[in-house]
């Protein structure tokens, strides 16, 4: 594929004595869905938070579109075009869809909020993603279903012409039909040329939408493989043992701290 949009080189992160991420390398290509898998505590969410600027990294380099960047806070990441859709949905219940989608980056005219402009833009974005379930963009988020909330959170990322979207377990709490909707949406994001990172526990989801799979094992990148080259079983082995045949960390014992 083309040049990676986001490259991580040797990312390390510790919380006190706990070394959570060891020398993580990862490339995210535009137009591709990269699945990030790993067992609980493998460091997936921490890695996402490091990229999003919520946790500072201890060492390592982040390159965005080939340029080294320093992400110090959520705002820096957003300015670059990196959007994160969190597991626990960062939406304010008491605001409506438009207000949530523009939260923190309201459009203003003469110092005042430009509501009609924001409403149009929000509607256009939702339409471009073929979101069909929302009756009004002025609906309060508190009255939306789980799937609709997820959709809004993802659409928020698209609204900002983001280059990279990180999705932290977007289908974890959803029913069958809603999961279908969200996975379709994930695919459409990649088709629009975004680099998508999908964190998931669900192997079916991963094999359905991902172009490549990155396996974290105890804070190390065990392997980054192309989806079509591996089987379910191999990925599960990578997740649970850190290796599978030739793939993965050479001596898993060394990986334990």
């Amino acid at each position: 594929m083309s040049e990676p949009i986001l490259e991580l080189r040797g990312i390390n992160k510790s919380f006190g004595p706990v070394h959570v991420l060891h020398d993580i390398d990862l490339d995210v290509n535009p137009g591709e869905v990269t699945a990030l898998v790993g067992d609980n505590g493998a460091g997936k969410s921490t890695l996402v938070k490091c990229i999003a600027g919520i946790h500072p990294t201890d060492s390592g380099e982040v390159l965005f579109a080939g340029e080294p960047v320093h992400i110090k806070g959520p705002r820096d990441a957003a300015d670059l075009g990196i959007e994160v859709v969190y597991q626990d949905l960062a939406l304010a219940d008491n605001l409506d869809i438009v207000q949530n989608m523009f939260l923190g980056r309201e459009r203003t005219k003469g110092g005042l909020l430009d509501e009609s402009d924001m409403e149009q833009a929000a509607r256009k974005t939702l339409a471009s993603l073929s979101v069909r379930t929302v009756k009004s963009v002025r609906t309060q988020v508190s009255s939306l279903s789980g799937g609709q909330r997820q959709t809004v959170a993802i659409a928020k990322a698209v609204l900002w012409n983001s280059k990279v979207v990180l999705l932290d377990e977007p289908t974890a709490a959803l029913g069958v039909a809603q999961t279908r909707q969200v996975l379709d949406l994930v695919r459409r994001l990649a088709e629009q040329g975004l680099g998508v990172v999908l964190i998931s526990h669900n192997m079916n989801d991963v094999f359905e939408v991902a172009d490549k799979i990155a396996c974290l094992y105890l804070g190390r990148m065990a392997a980054v493989v192309s989806t079509k080259d591996v089987t379910h079983g191999q990925v599960v082995e990578l997740i649970t043992a850190g290796r599978s045949g030739d793939l993965g960390i050479a001596r898993p014992e060394a990986a334990t701290i």
Partner: peptide
């Protein structure tokens, strides 16, 4: 409260502090 970003942020922090923080507020 209704027409400025400050007001909008205020409601957002009141509704979901973590969401507001992640939105860069």
């Amino acid at each position: 409260l209704d027409r400025t970003s400050y007001g909008r942020h205020l409601y957002a922090v009141g509704g979901n502090k973590e969401a507001a923080r992640r939105a860069g507020i």
